[in-house]
Simulated assay, not measured.
Amino acid sequence: MSPQLLLFILISVSLSSGSQIILKKGMIAPKMQASLMSGDVPTIFLTILTSPMVIGGLFCFGLSALFWLFVLSRVPLSSAYPFVALGIGVTVLAGLTLFGETVSTSAAIGVGLIILGILCVASQG
């Protein structure tokens, strides 16, 4: 795999992970939480559709998909797709550092095994 294709994979995965982080930030905002607690479906939809963080997260997700389409046109799926799992590590780390979430020892070991698996796939060329 060429360095350029690897870079495009990493950009796609980074944008996808970043989109999840941005979406989480948007969905836990006080205004969003108040809207969700209201139970009023039109208000909830309007709040979601007008949230800059949600819109930004969806934009990043769409951009990630465009990079991913380019990758899929040039890299075997069996080589490219395992890199998507890198997003698990990124989002778990973001949950810990940005949102104060906790991760059990077994979950941390699982994420480590996923990353080890990605390294194995990446080393095959």
Rank of each mutant, 00 (worst) to 15 (best):
F8S: 11
T43P: 00
L58V: 15
S106W: 14
G117A: 04
G95E: 02
L58K: 10
C60W: 07
D40T: 14
L58C: 10
V71G: 00
L23H: 04
G62P: 00
S38W: 05
A122V: 07
T47R: 02
K25A: 14
L69I: 15
L69Y: 12
M37T: 14
M27L: 13
A29D: 10
G89A: 01
P30F: 11
L58R: 07
I48D: 01
T102W: 06
L96Y: 09
L49E: 11
G57E: 01
M1R: 04
C60N: 03
S2D: 10
I109R: 05
V54T: 09
F59W: 12
L93V: 13
F59P: 10
A29V: 13
F45Q: 14
L15P: 03
L36H: 09
T105D: 11
A34G: 13
G39K: 03
A80M: 02
A85P: 01
I28L: 07
F8R: 12
T91S: 00
L5M: 08
A29M: 09
Q20V: 10
P76E: 03
L6M: 12
A108C: 03
T43E: 13
K24N: 08
G87T: 00
S73Q: 12
G56Y: 05
S64K: 02
F59N: 07
G56V: 04
I11E: 03
T50H: 08
V13L: 06
L49K: 13
I88G: 00
V92K: 02
P52M: 07
L46Q: 15
P82K: 05
T97E: 11
L49V: 15
P76D: 05
I22V: 08
G18W: 01
A85S: 13
L93H: 08
L72Y: 01
G95K: 00
S104E: 09
R74D: 06
F61W: 15
E101Y: 05
L96H: 08
K31S: 15
F61E: 11
M37R: 15
A80Y: 01
S79G: 05
Y81S: 12
R74S: 10
V13M: 02
S12H: 01
M53N: 13
V90I: 11
M1E: 07
V111N: 02
K31L: 15
L6G: 01
L69N: 10
R74H: 11
L6F: 12
S104G: 10
A122C: 05
V71W: 00
I109G: 01
L66Y: 12
Q4G: 13
L63P: 04
S73C: 10
I109C: 03
F70K: 11
Q33D: 10
T105F: 14
R74Q: 14
G56Q: 07
T50E: 06
I55T: 04
E101Q: 06
G125R: 11
Q20T: 12
I21K: 07
P82W: 02
Q4A: 12
D40A: 09
L96N: 05
G117T: 05
L86Q: 03
S16Q: 15
S38T: 11
R74L: 12
P42A: 04
A85I: 06
V71Y: 00
G100E: 03
S123N: 14
T43V: 15
I11M: 04
